[in-house]
Design a protein around this nucleic acid. Sequence first.
DNA 1: GCGACTTTGTACCTGCGTTCACAAGCGGTT
DNA 2: AACCGCTTGTGAACGCAGGTACAAAGTCGC
Lengths: 230, 230
Amino acid sequence: MTQSRPRIVPEATVARLAVYLRVLAGLADGGRSHVSSGELAAAAGVNPAGLRKDLSYLGPCGVRGVGYSVAGLQERLSAALGVERSRACVLVGMGRLGAALADYAGFASRGFEFVGLLDADPARVGDRVSGCTVRPVEELESVVAGTQASIGVITTPAEVAQSVCDRLVAAGVRSILNFAPVALSVPAGVDVRKVDLSVELQVLAFLDQQRDGGPPPVVVPVPAGAGGAR
Amino acid sequence: MTQSRPRIVPEATVARLAVYLRVLAGLADGGRSHVSSGELAAAAGVNPAGLRKDLSYLGPCGVRGVGYSVAGLQERLSAALGVERSRACVLVGMGRLGAALADYAGFASRGFEFVGLLDADPARVGDRVSGCTVRPVEELESVVAGTQASIGVITTPAEVAQSVCDRLVAAGVRSILNFAPVALSVPAGVDVRKVDLSVELQVLAFLDQQRDGGPPPVVVPVPAGAGGAR
DNA sequence: GCGACTTTGTACCTGCGTTCACAAGCGGTT
DNA sequence: AACCGCTTGTGAACGCAGGTACAAAGTCGC
Ligand SMILES: NC(=O)c1ccc[n+]([C@@H]2O[C@H](COP(=O)([O-])OP(=O)(O)OC[C@H]3O[C@@H](n4cnc5c(N)ncnc54)[C@H](O)[C@@H]3O)[C@@H](O)[C@H]2O)c1
Ligand SMILES: NC(=O)c1ccc[n+]([C@@H]2O[C@H](COP(=O)([O-])OP(=O)(O)OC[C@H]3O[C@@H](n4cnc5c(N)ncnc54)[C@H](O)[C@@H]3O)[C@@H](O)[C@H]2O)c1
């Protein structure tokens, strides 16, 4: 047995690793060969020490006094995130949001390929989106089986999201990205991530309202450094 | 001095409050007058005790032995989240994603109204999307000023996101929802929330890969209750 | 070849979020 | 009118994530 997985990586760290990987791609395009944690952290909008701690979960991958090798870090992060081999994805619900996602070049360039697009509306079936033909939702099981898709994306109306999810899971999909505003129930061993855009707006509205009512007429309650990014 | 703000609400709680509010809307449509924390928590996909703690930040708003009044909670949550008065939003970058967002009925029904749609592409200018005309990005400042928009949504390519952000902030927008894959720098007092869909997929890919490499040939390492939602 | 500087990697600490568990309060019932 | 069961609200403990500070280590300059 290899000792390759002595440390477990927190999920919050995994999300940031993906951000670092994207920033590294930009640096590589710019011809850079090395980066310091400070520079990388600034570009990613995080604390330098936190970035180093994130990277340390993968074992030592930098050189003290010099920084990190851009190419080396890219390879290390790609391996850790499982982006080495590209992942097959199926998308159910080719509405406005689903069409935007399926047609987005940023996914393919990061190793995510949509191998199945499904919709219940006969008017949508047959459309070609970025090299893939929309197929009737009845073929969900056969498409998943035939493509060995590992990720399912749900962009259907909320009412049918659970049933679509159940069918995806039954067909063998163990990772689901859900855009419908419902909490999906899945058996153990299946991972669901939910993107809820209404919630994002409402959090902003809350912060806005709190900001107006919050700070009394004191000067400015912000001691931290200028121009922070988030 | 009023004692109306003795408690501060954690941001993670605020996000869940928005979910509760949506679930309540569904219950109200179903004619329900009261709910227990257990039922609400199941529908929202969270822990019942956590839900009660979340609600307790707003002060006591339930009746012991009975549960929560659906209508009462809706009102309480709407007030806390600042959804009483509808919020004016401007969206910059009417591409595929921007068009899907601007045309989404779920925002308007929750009090978020797009009062300004902006794009740099002359071919897009003049399009009408859900009752609003796309205008050239040069008019950004006048649109923000004229509509008193409080929330800015950025769906432009990553390269121009920072400059668009700067113009929004300069025009008076203090809440920004960013879909471009870059970390935005903003002055203190401005809130930014970032939605990064590539990261969501990469986290799923990581979990998938970890799942395959993680559990050795033991039976099933999952003792917890069945059918958890997330 | 040696010293000093730079940058990583990590140990410690602080604060937040989540969960468990229990006491307080209200309605319904007899 | 008093009891009983149900549900809320909250106190305390736990675990985790983030930030600070420092020591190890390697390189560059002399
Ligand atoms: N568009 C947005 O900006 C936005 C924002 C937040 C959330 N959402 C959520 O994303 C989901 C999709 O939104 P949208 O705007 O694209 O809606 P949409 O109506 O444009 O698209 C939904 C698509 O799902 C298809 N569909 C319906 N039932 C189906 C089934 N059983 N199997 C397969 N396909 C089915 C429809 O034919 C349609 O093409 C909704 O749940 C919505 O709440 C969308
Ligand atoms: N579509 C997706 O599924 C998806 C997923 C993840 C992230 N994103 C991100 O969202 C953003 C938009 O994605 P998209 O697929 O809609 O791209 P798109 O190219 O379809 O749309 C971009 C729009 O922005 C406009 N634009 C360009 N420069 C502008 C400027 N300076 N001012 C105003 N408008 C300008 C363009 O004219 C175009 O209409 C990108 O940053 C992308 O990385 C999109």
